[in-house]
Nucleic acid binder design. Structure first.
Lengths: 212, 212
DNA sequence: GGCCGAATCCCACTTACGAGGGAGCGGACG
DNA sequence: CGTCCGCTCCCTCGTAAGTGGGATTCGGCC
């Protein structure tokens, strides 16, 4: 039962153990071959251009260059690239950002192999693959209020612990304007104060913890 | 070259892909055998009691029952148990808590196989295994100020977005006392306000994001 | 015993935050 | 074209947050 053809897969994750696991899982499919690996977004872009894989398995949270940026760059060079995000997190903002950056599927890292290979096969057939739990997050996002770009920018400074005055100075607007935005942010996130806003924003993937 | 004896290893991680990776990595060592797997702390305690492995590879962040609690329970039943923590995070508090709970080693998930098997072999010989980067975090912790139990309790409520008054009600103390603690917390964490305190506490592993 | 540091608690004061409004201006979209 | 919505700015007001001090208790250590 020689397969009609083999499919090249690129594996991108900064954790060696995860790459080993994917290599092992994919090796059980006779028509899959792991054509290459990358440990960060920059390596991923280079590897994709070199290998032109049929599917790319991509983590989001990586050093040097994150998955989102890598997805954008890869699809600039190869608009037909099929990218499957494999993430630990399920914040609605992460999911939405990945899909709108051009990912065709999104699965969670605690998925077992009977979730991973079907997802890859779906992408090979040009289909999208969004599990129910992931789709649920997206639906919840649509129901709730969505932060504007400016509001996200303010939340980014908020997690640094900046006061309203400082945030205003950074963005070149008055403190009053910041407070006005902050009021909308608190309402949209349905929280009582800025501290809770930080935890909710982190949980939903709207912002991430600064590296240092 | 038949090995003199084989060593039983228990793998504990909630991510299927990680378990697969470890299974694959360990299978390359002829004297290692993955005797069992567990996807959370409760399963880990049961599996350890049943299998009595020579070494347990344990993730920290897991649902149902976290790794820390699992380490404590396992070492209550088997004080000689050798547990190697395999974590993605490197917050000094996580590291310190795991080691004082009884773990004998601590490695990071982006470690390659040439870091993982030596760590396991070290534990098999009754030695500890703390990589430089991990030891550095611990050293930094010792240099800095360490939060008291009461202060950690307050930080836990802080990340929920509770106001000082609420925190006081929860702990049965006055708001004034909470503010006094908060003052010390801000000083110890070297931050300006409670918002920054949340991000620093999360980054250092002093507290974790609430599940919901 | 006596000293010291750490943890806990209390008070007064200044500042920042968040609620409750309102208003003008721009682009997007039907 | 008008309407919505995001961005900007404005004012007031009550309250929470953060800063300065000081008091207490308790255990360790010389």
């Amino acid at each position: 039962m020689k397969p009609s053809r083999t499919y090249k897969i690129l594996v991108v994750d900064d954790h060696f153990v995860v790459r080993a696991g994917l290599r092992d899982i994919l090796s059980h499919e006779p028509d899959f071959i792991v054509a290459g690996e990358a440990a960060n977004g920059r390596e991923a872009v280079a590897a994709h251009a070199r290998l032109l894989p049929d599917v790319t398995l991509m983590d989001l949270r990586m050093p040097v260059c994150g998955g989102l940026e890598a997805i954008r760059l890869i699809r600039e060079n190869s608009p037909a690239a099929r990218i499957l995000v494999l993430s630990s997190y399920e914040g609605d903002e992460d999911i939405h950002a990945a899909l709108s950056a051009g990912a065709m599927g999104y699965i969670l890292k605690h998925s077992s192999d009977d979730q991973i290979t079907p997802a890859i096969r779906a992408l090979l057939q040009g289909k999208r693959w969004i599990p129910l739990e992931v789709a649920g997050q997206l639906a919840a996002r649509e129901r709730g209020e969505i932060l504007s770009e400016r509001e996200r920018e303010i939340v980014r400074l908020l997690v640094l612990g900046d006061a309203n005055k400082q945030i205003g100075d950074t963005l070149g607007i008055t403190e009053l304007t910041v407070k006005s935005h902050m009021k909308n942010i608190l309402a949209k996130l349905k929280v009582r104060d800025r501290t809770e806003a930080v935890t909710v924003a982190l949980r939903r993937g709207i912002v991430h913890l600064p590296d240092e």
